[in-house]
Amino acid sequence: MFYNLVLYKDLDVAPKWFGKNLRQHVEEKLIQEVEGTCNGRFGYVVAVSQIVSVSPGVIRQDGTGFATFQVMYKALVFRPYKGEVLDTSVTSVNKMGFFAEAGPLQVFVSNHLIPEDFEFTATGDPCYQSSDGFTKIQEGSEVRLRIVGTKMDQSDIFCIGTIKDDYLGVLGGPV
């Protein structure tokens, strides 16, 4: 699920930036440091949408001359939940299941959580093929799945998903 949250970040800025472009630099640095990161609590920081405020800088007392700015910013975060339904694109298929990505999030769908009528075929591009042969899950396929388990790390989130449920499964083939 996506949220627009107000978050805080302490930025250390080198003294050479203490000039008229300081604010610009702080903004750039913030984006560089937080966008694309993952946080065990809020999930992935997808984008910084607004910088609310930048506190006055405090010179660090360690001789480096760096100043610390506390930045309050709004960011779009993406946090997956158990039970959430996501549209993903398949990145790799193997006999144990397939991996799919929803933006930064990686989801693994085990072959136990793929309907029984899908069979793994290793010939050519590895894929899961339905018994009638019409549907195929291969690299690049778009799949709607439900998250059944999440593992939140300090720096990464990993989920397992299922397509063994109503209204889940392949949305489209590789483009």
Binding site: D12, P15, T64, G65
Partner: peptide, 23 residues
Amino acid sequence: PGHGFTSRTPTMYAPASPGNFAP
């Protein structure tokens, strides 16, 4: 020296402003 940002994201490879250059 003293420019201590880490190269976390690919964005750093496309420095848009000359400010990213060392003096």
